[in-house]
Design a protein around this nucleic acid. Structure first.
Lengths: 229, 229
DNA sequence: ATGAATGATGGCAAACCTGTGGCAGCCGGC
DNA sequence: GCCGGCTGCCACAGGTTTGCCATCATTCAT
């Protein structure tokens, strides 16, 4: 099914022009000339994307008002301002108001189309599973990145923040050797090499409390550490 | 944890200029002069947003290549081209390649900032899908989103607006750790870290008036707070 | 095998984080 | 104006975490 694009623009010639162009590129277009008719239509059915002019007939800021109404109806609806007004002030206001893009009428048709499809691409990420990696499992190890909780064969292991980052850095690519500098970067710290050694010591101890045979963190002489599967 | 913005730009003066501006607006900035150093850094840690020049030193299209590499690493990472090239061709290529926005260096600083924050707003939708529930119930907790009223095992708890937002932010994903910056965003305030501590103190006190054993808000040392089911 | 370099360990002090009480500014209602 | 509630911030106290060192053990190259 084609995507629907709503155009709100008071000038009939420009409106028809843009509408034609969008239709030619496979969108299903509904066009409105003023705020009221657009708002009425949106209340029954939202488009997949809205292209708004700012000045609408009698209302010099009708587009802004419409943008606010739309945002109240849906936080995710892609909104683009397409207007003759090219002041910084209007642009910043428009974006602050919740629009996703702001184009002046000097924008070329290819630019408009490219920006519309870029915005659709991003909006589509919401529909699909955003692939938000929440938990990392490596054998008996389990790291919940949202809860900042670590577990080893079912039992929970209390790690401090720095320790958690270090374990995450090591376990993300099992078998890969991480040198101390990389570990510092992943843990967002800048410290002496010996301090990393200390952290590894404490991490090992904490895992050994839960599993005496724990040996997943292997030292690689002269290089750093490696997570052993 | 402030948002990180990566800037890849070969001209040292421009790079420093943009980096300063972004830092002044609260972003944590990492700057790179060429494709290789940027790509290396991105492989270990992705920024929250990338600002790319297209021409990078010897490579006239280094930014395009970098954009492709970044998109391979993450489909959701916000990417903005910021370049002197103002041809339609480059713009359309850049957006087709997966960038979310395309700015020329003639763009004003307010425009750049507004577009960055608009993009962050949209990217945030991925992290916290919009919730439209009228009433949120989590065990004994009950939040009426319409009336801004909170309840604990049937008894009503008088929260101020800010407190209500904070409780909502915490309770929405029980167990998930929210740092102070996320809490501020969810409560629509910009304050000192210690102020969040104060709010939590007052929230706990109010719940404890109703239930002496209240302990649903757990502090996570070094990170923030978590709602305990 | 031997020595230099690297890593492990225990310990300690500094740095950091949080909880708490308190206070000042702000705003709205009376 | 005056009052009271809300908010933001600070100073202090107590506890946790972290960084580093001295010492001992291990590894690698000669």
């Amino acid at each position: 099914m084609p995507r629907t694009v709503a155009i709100v623009e008071d000038d009939p010639a420009i409106r028809a022009n843009y509408a034609d162009m969008l239709k030619k590129h496979g969108y299903q277009v509904s066009a409105y000339a003023d705020r009221k008719s657009a708002a009425d239509a949106f209340r029954t059915r939202l488009p997949d994307l809205a292209l708004l002019d700012i000045g609408l007939g009698e209302e010099p800021d009708g587009g802004f008002a419409l943008c606010r109404e739309l945002r109240a109806l849906s936080a995710a609806l892609p909104i683009i301002f397409l207007t003759a007004r090219d002041s910084d002030f209007d642009l910043v206001s428009g974006l602050r108001m919740g629009a996703d893009d702001y184009l002046t009428k000097s924008a070329s048709l290819p630019e408009i189309l490219a920006r519309i499809s870029a915005l659709f691409r991003r909006a589509d990420l919401l529909r699909d599973p955003p692939a938000a990696e929440e938990v990392l499992e490596r054998g008996p190890l389990r790291l919940d990145m949202k809860r900042f909780q670590a577990g080893w064969s079912g039992k929970s292991v209390d790690l401090t923040l720095t320790e958690f980052w270090l374990v995450h850095s090591l376990a993300r690519f099992p078998g890969h050797v991480k040198d101390r500098d990389q570990l510092m970067r992943d843990a967002h710290i800048v410290v002496d090499d010996s301090t990393i050694t200390s952290h590894v010591k404490r991490i090992r101890r904490k895992f050994q409390v839960v599993d005496g045979a724990f040996a997943a963190i292997e030292s690689v002489y002269g290089l750093g550490y490696r997570w052993n599967p």
